[in-house]
Amino acid sequence: MAANKKIEFSEETLALCHKLIKRYPEGKHKSALIPILHLAQAEFDGWLSPEVMEYVASILKIQAIEAFEVASFYSMFNLKPVGKCHLEICRTSSCWLMGAEDVVRHLEKRLGIKEGETTPDGMFTIKTVECLGSCGTAPMMQVGADYYENLTLEKVDQLLDRMKASGKRKSYTDVAETRPL
C-alpha cells in the first residue's frame, strides 16, 4: 500500500459497516469487529496493517489494541502482505491421506517458492492450513472465497494458469464463482 494513501473505506463499504453494526443490540457494536476486519482486509490489499486496524477500531470506537488482539488471534487475518492469490492448502488428516503433500510440493516446484513465501511478482503465496471442512473432496485448496476440491496436479496447473492470466486479487469476501450444485 502506498504510504501516502489515506486509509478510508469506500462509501459503499462504510454503509455496509453501519448496517452490520445494527445487527447487534445497542452498545454491543464490538460484535461487528470480525466482519469489518474481513471487509478491511479485502479492501486494503489483502492484509491488515497497523493503520488499517487503527482505522477499523476508530469506526467501532474501541481501542486499537482490541482490534490487534482479535486480528492476531484468527488465522484468516494476514498481518503481513500476501500475494494476490493466497493459496491455502489443507494439510490435516484426510487431505494428507489423499495427497495434500504432493500438491504442496508441486506448487513449490512450479512457483519456485517455499511454503509461507510469496512469488517475487506478488502474485502467489503458498500457505498450508488446517482442516477446511472439505475432507470428502480431498485434497483441496482455498483461494479467496473459492474452494478447489478433488485436486490433481493437472488441475492445480490449470488453476495457476487461470489465476495468473486474470491477475486479479482473490479475497474471502468476493464470492464470485458460483458453485454448481
Binding site: 488428516s93 488446517e130 482442516c131 475432507c135 470428502g136
Partner: peptide
C-alpha cells in the same frame, strides 16, 4: 463453525 477434522456435513447441508 464446523472445524473438526473429518467433518463436513454442516457445510453440505447449508450449501444444499
Amino acid at each position: 463453525d464446523e472445524s473438526e477434522p473429518g467433518t463436513f456435513k454442516d457445510r453440505y447441508l447449508m450449501e444444499r
